[in-house]
């Protein structure tokens, strides 16, 4: 072989060598099917937990976001405001630039409905006057339905002389969102802790593997293998553990989502909303798989760094 053709074939040989090591370490894992599967399953379960929680939380965010934009403002009028006055106020408010619709719920209509629905008809009949005020249900224009702008509009309405109580039904949505933010933090913390667990699992598995192959390592060093050469198959093994663990986590989360989608659809029906549980988006899957592979690689790197240099032939 001439020097030129030898140099030209070098990148090819390099790739060939890496592919060979990657495949042979994969073959080794397949050879020890049961123990490899158990290690990958442990990694998969550890990773499925934060990923699953993350998916549930982003679903919750979508729902509560929808609730927020649907929020309307309830304007309860003073008791002494007559029906006519209420009707004209509704008419004025309909002209407001930031208001889409105004629905007047007449105090008499409200009482009738209440009697019909509550089952306290007799008790209510005993009252000599209608305790319910006139109510205006105000729907802001779409551009003004964010929590902030809706709150501003509610402030404005409170200044009306006819207004008694102005209620913006966002408080509980806000609370839910605040809780979601906390939960998201918790998921990040959990993910960090479980990633450490994955590092330890892979590190320990690789450490045992190094011990099992001690003689092989010694002999290979004896005939002039560099540390990089000996390290390589272990790094690939760690990489495969991580990647397969990630795939198992993906499978577990997807399976749980399928199991949950039925009951959730039923729940949504009860709330008269149609809600589809969104499954894992491609970016989450990509982050999961690359992250898990990287964790496997790092775990084995740490183990290899600590334990391989201690083995010298004698």
């Amino acid at each position: 072989m001439s020097l030129k053709s030898r140099l030209l074939s070098m990148p090819g040989i390099w790739l060939q060598r890496h592919a060979q090591v990657a495949l042979s370490s994969l073959g080794r894992l397949v050879g020890n099917r049961l123990s490899s599967l158990m290690t990958c399953a442990v990694i998969g379960i550890a990773l499925a937990l934060p990923v699953g929680l993350h998916v549930m939380l982003s679903n919750l965010n979508t729902i509560s976001g929808g609730w927020e934009s649907g929020a309307s403002i309830s304007l309860f009028l003073d008791q002494n405001i007559s029906n006519d006055k209420a009707r004209s106020l509704a008419e004025t408010l309909r002209q407001h630039t930031r208001i889409e619709t105004v629905e007047l719920i007449n105090r008499e209509t409200a009482l009738e409905e209440f009697q019909r629905l509550s089952g306290y008809a007799d008790a209510l009949q005993a009252l000599d006057s209608n305790p319910l005020p006139n109510l205006l249900v105000i729907q802001p224009k779409v551009e003004y339905t964010t929590a902030e702008t809706a709150e501003k509009l509610a402030q404005e309405l409170r200044l009306l002389p006819e207004a008694d109580i102005v209620q913006l039904d966002l408080q509980w949505v806000r609370r839910l969102q605040a809780i979601t933010v906390i939960a998201q933090r918790a998921v990040v913390v959990l993910a960090a802790l479980l990633s450490m667990a994955v590092l330890l699992i892979v590190g320990n598995t690789i450490r045992l593997e190094i011990q099992n192959r001690r003689t092989e390592i010694e002999i290979t060093k004896l005939i002039g293998a560099t540390n990089a050469f000996i390290r390589r198959p272990f790094l690939y093994t760690g990489f495969w553990y991580g990647l397969f663990g990630g795939l198992i986590a993906w499978f577990l989360v997807a399976l749980s989502l399928i199991l949950l989608s039925g009951p959730i659809a039923k729940l949504a029906q009860l709330y008269q909303s149609s809600f589809d549980l969104s499954s894992l988006d491609p970016i989450t899957v990509l982050v999961l798989l690359s992250g898990s592979a990287l964790l496997g690689l790092t775990g084995s790197w740490l183990a290899v760094g600590r334990h391989l240099s201690a083995i010298e032939p004698s």
Binding site: E216, E218, I219, K221, L222, I223, G224, A225, T226, N227, F229
Partner: peptide
Amino acid sequence: IPYHRREVGMIFQDHRLL
């Protein structure tokens, strides 16, 4: 050391085969 060992062939009583 590895590059040095590649230039020295070593044979052992216990063969040291894989």
